[in-house]
Every structure is written in structure tokens, then in C-alpha cells.
Design a protein around this nucleic acid. Structure first.
Lengths: 145, 145
DNA sequence: TTAATTGCGGACATATTTGTCCTTATTTAA
DNA sequence: TTAAATAAGGACAAATATGTCCGCAATTAA
């Protein structure tokens, strides 16, 4: 896959939390892992990363859980989630792994690869959790099988 | 990075072998690893995969080494090298890791992701080792720093 | 035939990713 | 105050990717 497992779980989890935050509901780790079909303890680690990156918010104690402030939703893009979890090496570095590869000293595939990567980055920058939750609400798309 | 280390080495190695085959020179593992700056023993494993996939050809014994039949060069695409080494899961599967995700039952990011992936696939399908070696020969691009 | 050179392939070693377990701190409700 | 529910986080475990080592087989040249 293009992204790590951690990233896939992170995107699904953020989206599930977002859906619930739109309805002013806070959700627990157990609830999230159950609904997005991910390993619970591993998902906990990923949620912690997202909390540290200030993408989601957590509340401890009974009735605690995870939530996202509604006004943040349009600002949380796929690119931000991916950078928080996988780092931004997907958006940098040579296709062939050369340490020196730039417009002025390109590897053989540099030009065509940069074009695609730019388009990928644009797409991930322009796709927000708010956008994605819209399709889910209207039943056009799905989070589970 | 988008591809595995093995894949990066595989692309660099294939390209280096291609350059030499154009000059009717066979190259040894040691030579290849030295020139593309990759770990020798690990590169050996990758070259074996490429041999098994009939992408490169090997000759045992003294004066042996690796080569590519010239007429094959235009047919060896980046996509084929990547599939041989990493498999084709880059070109399949859901961005979010859902097992059921298709046009008829799409995950929230399905549509925009499929578009990018299609463009990536097209680029990798249309970029041959022959094309890439051209830039190297003319000094427009580089294989090493 | 012998020695040198090379690819092949199995076994092993290390690093990273993925995943689990358990204790602690925090909060709520009884 | 006590018990239950929750997130936080450290330590560990398993799986996968990356990398190394060594002996074997094939080929060539002396």
C-alpha cells in the first residue's frame, strides 16, 4: 500500500471521531477500534500521536474519550494526518533513493515523478476530514465493509 | 519513500545494467553494487528476483555477470520492476485499508485517490529503462551523486 | 586439472513496523 | 470514599524489511 498500516488506521479513526463530533458525541478507544476494525492497543498509540499533533483532542476518565472541535474539521487534511503519523518523507526524497536529486541534478525519473507527487500532494492537501465525512453522512461512501 | 529500498536498488541496478548492455558489456554484482552505491549481498537477492522475473539475464562463472538483451530494453518499464520486487499491491487496495472498497462501494477517499493512482500507474507503465538510459547517456540525468 | 571468478541460495543478524500487555493517572458516579 | 471507566505510556512480543555470511555450482583461463 501507499501508506503504512498506522496511517490507514489513523485516517479511519480520525474520520470516525469526526463523524461523532459532528453529533457532539465523544467516543472511546474501544468504540473506535471496534467500529473501524483495528487492533485496540495499536490504535491507542496512533491516537496518542494525533493528540500530540493537536489533530484530535482527548479527555481522560469515565465518560472520557476522543473528539475533534468542529471548527477544526475543514482544516484537518489527509496530508496532515499522514505527516503526523508517517512523517513527510512521502513528499520528499528521490524515487530511486539518490541522496542528491533535484531539478538541477535530476535522477532519470525525476521529472515525471515530481509531477505525479505534486498531484498527490495537492489532492491530500485539498481533501479534508470535513469533506470526507460529508460522503459518509449522505451514505455515498463507507467506512466499513 | 513511495517504494521500498529493495525497489530503489532494483531500479538503479537495472538501469546500470542497461547502460552497460547498450555497450555490449556484462557487469558483475560487485561492479553494480559499487556503482549504484548499494549493499552488495542485499543487491544480490534483488538481482535474483529480477532474473526470476526474466527482466535481466545472468551468466555464471568467471567473466559472468548480468546483462539485458537490447531488444528488451523498451519493454522493461518501471512498473514491471516494481511489480517484480514489491508485488503489485501499490496498484491495488484501498487508501484507508478497507478490504471492500470499489467504485460501487467506495471509501470516502476512493474517487480522488483512484485518479492519482491511475496517473501514477500510467507514468510507471510508460517509463521504460530504455527511455531513462537515454537521459543518462546524454548527460542530462544522473545515477549517482 | 587446478585455481580464480562469478552467480545462487540457504541460514542467520539487525532494524523497523506492527501489535500486545500491564501499570498508572484521571475523572465520574454511586 | 470507593469502584468503575477511561486515556497515557512503558515494556515487551511478533512480523516484516533490510542486510550479512558462507558454502555450492558453473564457467573460464592458466
Amino acid at each position: 500500500m501507499m501508506f503504512s498500516k498506522a496511517c490507514e488506521y489513523g485516517i479511519r479513526a480520525t474520520l470516525y471521531i469526526a463523524m461523532n463530533s459532528l453529533g457532539d458525541k465523544r467516543v472511546s478507544l474501544r468504540n473506535i477500534a471496534g467500529k473501524i476494525d483495528s487492533p485496540e492497543a495499536f490504535t491507542a498509540k496512533i491516537l496518542q500521536q494525533l493528540v500530540h499533533h493537536d489533530i484530535i483532542h482527548s479527555v481522560k476518565g469515565a465518560t472520557g474519550g476522543f473528539e475533534i472541535e468542529k471548527h477544526k474539521l475543514p482544516d484537518i487534511t489527509l496530508a496532515k494526518i499522514i505527516s503526523a503519523i508517517d512523517g513527510d518523507h512521502l513528499f520528499h526524497g528521490c524515487v530511486m533513493g539518490l541522496s542528491i536529486c533535484a531539478d538541477a541534478h535530476p535522477c532519470p525519473a525525476h521529472l515525471s515523478y515530481e509531477k505525479i507527487r505534486g498531484e498527490l500532494k495537492t489532492m491530500l492537501d485539498n481533501t479534508s476530514i470535513y469533506d470526507l465525512s460529508h460522503g459518509l453522512e449522505t451514505g455515498l461512501t463507507f467506512l466499513k465493509q
